[in-house]
Computed example of a mutant assay.
Amino acid sequence: MKIAILDRDGTINALGDEPFIASPDDWTPVPGALAAIARLNHGGWRVVIATNQPGLGRGLFDVAALNAIHGGMHRQLAAMGGRIDAVFYCPHAPDEACHCRKPATGLFEQICERYGVDAHEVCVVGSCIAHLQAGAAFGAPLHLVCTGAAAGLDPAAALPPEWPPGTRAHASLAAFAEELLAHDSALPAPPPLP
């Protein structure tokens, strides 16, 4: 099973002046992100989101608002022929010391347990350093997309030292999907079943 674990804010949806969104009206896709997810799906990849949502823990929005945001995201993606298999989120504020808030690995552990895969069988993709730090601690391959919080980074240049070693940088989610699917198509076909 091929699974890409994506961060949400800055990777799939654009952010305005705030570091989070609190209502469906705030949700706007990063250009090309939804088409990239649809391409991954059509290439045999399951896409799962792992996202910190501290606004829940701080009381800035409720679960109904979060579900409405994700409902709109799912509808827009379905209109493009794509899907997100599941959304895993941490509802805790940063001071709650939970195991699921990235850069802790709890969300990734939950995802791998649900799908019956190991860390090396997933791709961790995001624009947020905490998402990639969690992926590194979990032992998964890391892919940075230079959108959102990482928009100022050049994917062709060396990453600053605070980014986990071995992280591969891509200009966008679309560029990541293109490279991943090109790699998949270059792999030899499995032998036919007897």
Rank of each mutant, 00 (worst) to 15 (best):
A33N: 13
P31S: 12
I111Q: 01
A14F: 03
L6A: 05
N41R: 06
D95N: 13
A175E: 11
Y115Q: 02
N41W: 01
L159I: 04
V145A: 03
Q133F: 00
C112D: 04
A86F: 00
I21S: 09
H143K: 03
W45H: 12
A50L: 09
R114L: 07
P24D: 13
R58I: 09
L144T: 05
A158P: 10
A38M: 03
R75F: 00
L56F: 06
P161H: 12
R39G: 11
D118G: 15
A79K: 05
A97W: 02
G82T: 11
P165Y: 03
A35M: 02
H74K: 12
R168N: 05
D184E: 15
L187H: 02
A79M: 11
H99M: 12
I49E: 04
A149C: 07
F138K: 03
Q110E: 08
F88L: 05
C98L: 13
P161Q: 07
G116M: 04
A134D: 03
A174F: 11
L56E: 00
P194L: 06
C146W: 03
W45P: 10
E179A: 14
N52E: 08
P94H: 11
L193S: 05
A157F: 04
A182H: 14
P103E: 14
D184N: 08
D154P: 07
A174W: 07
A79Y: 02
V87Q: 00
L153Y: 11
L77T: 02
D25P: 03
A104I: 00
N13W: 07
D118V: 05
P103H: 15
D7F: 08
P160R: 13
M73E: 04
F61N: 06
A93Y: 15
F108H: 04
R8S: 14
P91I: 08
H70C: 13
G152A: 15
Q53T: 05
K102P: 15
Q110P: 00
P194N: 01
